[in-house]
Design a protein around this nucleic acid. Sequence first.
DNA 1: TCATAGATAGATCGATCGGTCTACTCGGAC
DNA 2: GTCCGAGTAGACCGATCGATCTATCTATGA
Lengths: 193, 193
Amino acid sequence: MTTRTAPGPRERLLDAARRLTYTQGMGIGVDALLKGANVARRSLYEHFGGKDGLIVEVLRRTTAEDEEWYRRTMRDAGADPRARLLAVFDGLAEAVDAPDFRGCRYLAADLALADPGHPGHAVTREYRERVHRLLEDELLRLGHPRPAHAAAQLLLLIDGTLAAGATRPGTHPVACARELAEHILATPRRDTP
Amino acid sequence: MTTRTAPGPRERLLDAARRLTYTQGMGIGVDALLKGANVARRSLYEHFGGKDGLIVEVLRRTTAEDEEWYRRTMRDAGADPRARLLAVFDGLAEAVDAPDFRGCRYLAADLALADPGHPGHAVTREYRERVHRLLEDELLRLGHPRPAHAAAQLLLLIDGTLAAGATRPGTHPVACARELAEHILATPRRDTP
DNA sequence: TCATAGATAGATCGATCGGTCTACTCGGAC
DNA sequence: GTCCGAGTAGACCGATCGATCTATCTATGA
């Protein structure tokens, strides 16, 4: 068996920060993060240099995981690009319906980090670009006439779903979005030679 | 001529708070609000009871103004419900392209006010319900077969537009959303007897 | 065995937080 | 003239902020 080592302070800090910055917002205090992680104060500054460094590393980790979630969701949906893209919205339904859902972590981060020079913004921007490329690749394989435009539309639907899910529960945002996504994917195909 | 009285400390506070909570976020400090409004500390607590009271009053004012913006935008667009609804998206284009645009104030407020019992949440929720009804009324007049559902879809598009406009400028979110809105409005009509 | 690196606990720093308080000013109403 | 309400200026409160520091403990490797 793979020896299960107890997670060190670095991992505990990342886990606690991921959880607390999402539920309490980026304004969460260092003391709360330390208590949530059961870690000594000094360890935070040794490993991350400060609160900002920890936040950026959390964003890096979660964006990597979420990008992997997109890849896995589409991989599990088979080979048809249309089914793969719609599977993303089916997966969103679970996330939005989760009891502790609080909207898109990255939108919240961008709105909370008022300083436009904060390094967290670069992480979220690159994440959105990667997701855009993921969607665009599928639309290319689908033979969509305007893959970049359609990818932007799908991203807009995803953003809207996460926003509506956080602010207007009971309005079934995923169903609303999936219906519109189907229309985007139904746009007349360009013949693939 | 209407005698132009210099705005009192209450109005100055509301103006400064509206501006600063949008540009700097809800985490803005009381000192910064007072300095921005050129108002004595005591006046804030006399008029609003505290920072939270000021924030709630700002949300009340801006929601009223934004609801009025929806009404005016649709009124100026004439009588055709379809044109009136599309005019909303044309109006959004100006807002999103404004140089100081930072996304939807109310979504940012809901994400920043971590306490679910904060009275600000009630203000934003009721605002969204009023906008929903505005859109639904137009869809009813249009003879849309599912006016409530379509209104939720339009709101999702608006949310997505404001989110994408704040996080992915250059992706032309308004054009993306307007195209999808046209599809919603093109849904086969229910015959109006 | 002992040295070292990493982690812990916690005191402490200056700054800032939201909020309360006193003292003073000023412009009418009586 | 006098009084009073509204506003200003700013000291002050305890709490908390992010960050630095010393001191101690502990596991591992030479």
